[in-house]
Structures are given as C-alpha cells and as structure tokens.
Amino acid sequence: MFELFNAGGFIMYPLLLCSLLVWFVTFEKIRFLNNLKKDIDLMFIKGQALLKENKIHEAKGLSHSIHPLLSTPYLTLFESEELTREQWSMRLGRRLIETQQGLKRSLWIIGTIGSSAPFIGLFGTVVGIIKSFQSIAASGKSGFAVVASGLSEALIATAAGIIVAVMAVILYNYFQNRLTSVNTEIKNRMQDLMDLI
C-alpha cells in the first residue's frame, strides 16, 4: 500500500490530507449528532413533563443542560407572555433557522472535497503524462517501458482522486439527509411544546 502511495507521486499527499479531513469531520459530526439527539429527547420528554405540571421556571432551567443550538429556540418558547402569537411564531422561526445553520457547520468541508478531489487527481494525471513525455524526450526512444512509470503515476493519482471524491460525496449526502431529519424533529418537538405553553 505504501509503495502504491509513493508511486502516485506528490499529488497523493494533498489527497491523503483531503481524506483525513473527510474522516475527521465525519467522526466529529456523528459524535455531535448523537449527543444532540440525547439533548432533543431530554428537552422534549422532561420539558413536556414539567410544562404539564405548570413548572415553567424548572422548564426554563432545563436550557442549561442542553446544547446552545437547542437552548436558544427552547428559551424562545417562554417569551409568549411578552409577544403576540404571530411575533412569537416568527421569533421562534428565526431561532430555528439559526439552529439549522449551526447544524450544517463544517459540512462544507466534505462537500468541497467531494467536488474538488477528482480535479486534484486529474492534476496528478497531467503531471504523470508530462513525466512520460519527458522520459521519451530524455531517452530519445518511445515504447511502454519508457512511459510506464509516468503512466502508472497518472493512473494511481486519478484512481485516488475518484476514491476520495466518491467517499466524500456519499458522506455529504448522508449528513444532508440526517440533518434534514434532525431539523424536522427539532421543529416538531418545539411546536408540540409550544402547544402546551
């Protein structure tokens, strides 16, 4: 594997960095979303129980134990006395949009790598072909033996770029789908709590 990596030329290092970034963001995002799921459940189950018992102060205090992306819209639920129903709904809508944007943080890295990795691989392809022509020029001969090293580098770089891109695109689409589901769940849970208030 190490020999294959070296055979791909210098372009393999940026591709390796891209791959590591994709996996770092992936594991961080999975950890974050799993913890957020626990907070969503806590906010809804405990918050619902407290609101049914009319324990508004304790329900507000619940915001200190959940993630800031959830606590901000959650606290907006308790501003109903100061605002009209329409103003209240609009303010909650704005807080939920902020939460939605916060959930997408760092996802752009995977998306960018997914779209740019094939071009990084293609650059490696071009460099490999240039080396092949330089080998022909230096030896004054043509044939497979002369160009084999350059073509091998070109093909390995191309394959590596495609692998990194495919991996990144699959993970990007997975997170987009999961974040849509999380956003819907947060919105629905907030509206259920709003009905109780």
Rank of each mutant, 00 (worst) to 15 (best):
residue 163 I to D: 03
residue 137 A to G: 03
residue 41 D to F: 14
residue 69 L to M: 05
residue 192 D to L: 13
residue 59 A to W: 13
residue 193 L to W: 00
residue 117 A to G: 03
residue 104 K to R: 15
residue 10 F to E: 11
residue 144 F to K: 03
residue 149 S to A: 15
residue 67 H to C: 01
residue 148 A to M: 08
residue 139 S to T: 04
residue 170 I to C: 02
residue 97 I to V: 11
residue 12 M to E: 11
residue 79 E to G: 15
residue 143 G to D: 07
residue 82 E to R: 13
residue 147 V to D: 03
residue 89 S to I: 12
residue 114 G to V: 12
residue 115 S to T: 15
residue 99 T to C: 15
residue 2 F to L: 09
residue 115 S to L: 04
residue 190 M to N: 06
residue 193 L to I: 07
residue 33 L to W: 04
residue 38 K to M: 04
residue 133 F to E: 12
residue 97 I to W: 05
residue 102 G to S: 13
residue 8 G to T: 05
residue 114 G to R: 14
residue 186 I to H: 04
residue 79 E to F: 02
residue 10 F to G: 09
residue 6 N to T: 10
residue 71 S to R: 02
residue 179 L to H: 04
residue 115 S to E: 11
residue 152 S to N: 10
residue 158 T to Q: 07
residue 179 L to W: 08
residue 131 K to C: 07
residue 167 M to D: 03
residue 100 Q to R: 11
residue 124 G to H: 10
residue 178 R to N: 08
residue 83 L to G: 13
residue 68 P to A: 03
residue 185 E to Y: 06
residue 134 Q to G: 11
residue 141 K to S: 13
residue 125 T to W: 03
residue 71 S to D: 09
residue 18 C to G: 12
residue 71 S to A: 04
residue 170 I to K: 00
residue 174 Y to W: 14
residue 150 G to E: 15
residue 186 I to K: 07
residue 18 C to W: 05
residue 94 R to V: 14
residue 178 R to Q: 13
residue 46 K to R: 06
residue 79 E to T: 12
residue 51 L to T: 02
residue 96 L to T: 15
residue 19 S to N: 14
residue 108 W to V: 12
residue 3 E to I: 07
residue 74 Y to T: 00
residue 7 A to Y: 04
residue 165 A to R: 04
residue 14 P to S: 10
residue 4 L to Q: 13
residue 40 I to T: 08
residue 54 N to P: 05
residue 151 L to N: 05
residue 69 L to Q: 09
residue 141 K to C: 05
residue 180 T to I: 00
residue 57 H to N: 11
residue 81 E to D: 13
residue 169 V to Y: 07
residue 164 V to W: 04
